[in-house]
Amino acid sequence: MRKGIWLALAFAGIGATVMSGTAEAQERVLRLGYLFSQGSQLGAGAQRFAAEVAKRTGSAYRIELYPNGAVGGEVEMAEALRIGHLDMAFITSAPFSGIIPDFGVFDIPFLFRDARHAHAVFDGPIGQDYLRKFQPKGFVALAFGENGMRHITNGKRPVASPEDLKGLSMRVPQSDVMLAGFRALGVKAEPLAFPALYGALQSGQFDGQENPIAVITASHFERVQKHLTLSGHIYSWAAILISKSAWETLGAAEQKAFVEAARAGGQVSREVAGRAETEGVDELRRAGMTVVATVDRAAFEARLDATTAEFGKRFGADLIQQIKSVR
């Protein structure tokens, strides 16, 4: 854990509380961290959430935002939430299958047809049931947001079929489900924390990676990758989280306001991620990337049949089918 950062944040939080106590006796400051830039889908959602909290609580609460991993990576932020060293965070799906194994089901490649299908799942009974799975781990999920549909980039060749992936070295998030899926496709897949990814691509440590378009553009991966494949192989959700200790200091009306604000912020993150799916791809084309717009999805799913069957044993074949059947 980055002790220096946490000490600095602790003092910053104390200072904000003291100043707000002299200016506006009712204001309380809560710190919210996220991994990407202010202009990212998470940044846009976090800013909307902060504005909605101020509006819905009559400025009794101010959300102080820490973008660009200023308070650590997502695994670190989740741990900081758990022990109460951080008040809030907007975290993508990447670390959660390791923290709450049940969430690994959503990392199964080609589980979702598209983002609209994923929204229906996460906004419906399945998603609401999964929101409650955070509390035993020491934090409360207020609402789902979006990182985006994940797509493949690489520096070697266009990828349109499973055969094109064979032998490529790729970075994937720290998810054993995603690792198993890509390895079943013949990829030399290894995990790596996101902040180290650009350098690893630049040095040739990896041939490729996979991320939502909004992340690819914001991170300027077009500078170190030649080919983009719009595979949409995994939907990467995100969640606006609050530490259990901070949540329990809120009254019932305040908790309701925070949930409503989080839903608004989550929706904005979806909208920004959705726009990136079209505008961002055009931007990457103009930057010189070759784009494979469609893949042989049936061929990918067929290649993953045995692995998907193993996932069925782990998560429940009925649950997987239930998710796939949502319209």
Score class of each variant (00 low, 15 high):
G312Y: 10
A309M: 04
F49S: 04
A44M: 04
R297D: 02
G316N: 14
L319T: 05
A60F: 11
G208V: 11
F194P: 00
G265A: 06
I5M: 05
E254T: 06
Q26F: 07
F221D: 02
L9Y: 05
P195H: 14
D296Q: 10
V224H: 08
R132F: 15
G69I: 09
S169Y: 10
A239E: 01
T249M: 03
R171T: 07
N147Y: 15
G138A: 09
V224E: 04
P95N: 10
A317L: 05
A78D: 01
R82W: 12
Q255H: 06
Q41H: 12
T278I: 14
G181K: 00
V281L: 07
R314S: 01
V121I: 13
S97C: 02
A10Y: 12
L168R: 05
L179N: 03
L230T: 11
Q321C: 03
F300H: 02
H220K: 15
P212M: 05
D102G: 01
G69V: 06
E210K: 08
F106I: 05
Y66F: 13
L230H: 11
I100R: 07
I320S: 08
E190T: 06
D282P: 01
A16V: 01
V295Y: 00
R28H: 14
V326M: 12
F206W: 03
L185C: 08
A298F: 10
G312V: 12
G73H: 10
P101Y: 15
A239W: 00
W247D: 00
H233R: 02
R28Q: 13
A200C: 08
W6R: 12
H85R: 09
L86G: 09
I108R: 00
A317T: 10
T217E: 11
R28S: 06
A196F: 15
A262V: 08
D123G: 07
G204N: 05
G45E: 06
R327G: 13
D114C: 14
K256I: 08
F315K: 01
H151A: 02
Q321M: 01
G43L: 04
E310W: 07
V215T: 12
G266H: 09
K324C: 06
A246T: 14
E79I: 05
Y130R: 05
A252I: 03
A70M: 07
N211R: 11
S59T: 04
P67V: 13
V105G: 04
R28N: 06
L197N: 02
Y130P: 01
Q128A: 11
R132C: 04
E64P: 00
A70T: 03
W247T: 03
L192A: 14
I91K: 10
M88P: 10
R28V: 12
I213W: 00
H119C: 11
A70E: 04
M1G: 09
S40W: 03
A8T: 09
I108Y: 00
K156W: 02
I14V: 09
V71E: 05
T217D: 07
S245A: 09
P162Q: 06
S20F: 13
I5A: 11
A80L: 13
R116Q: 15
F96R: 11
A46H: 00
V187Y: 10
T307G: 03
F300L: 07
L7V: 11
F110Y: 11
V105K: 05
N147H: 15
P95A: 12
D114W: 15
Q135C: 08
I100M: 12
V140A: 13
T294Q: 13
A160S: 13
P109I: 06
F300P: 01
A120M: 12
R2G: 03
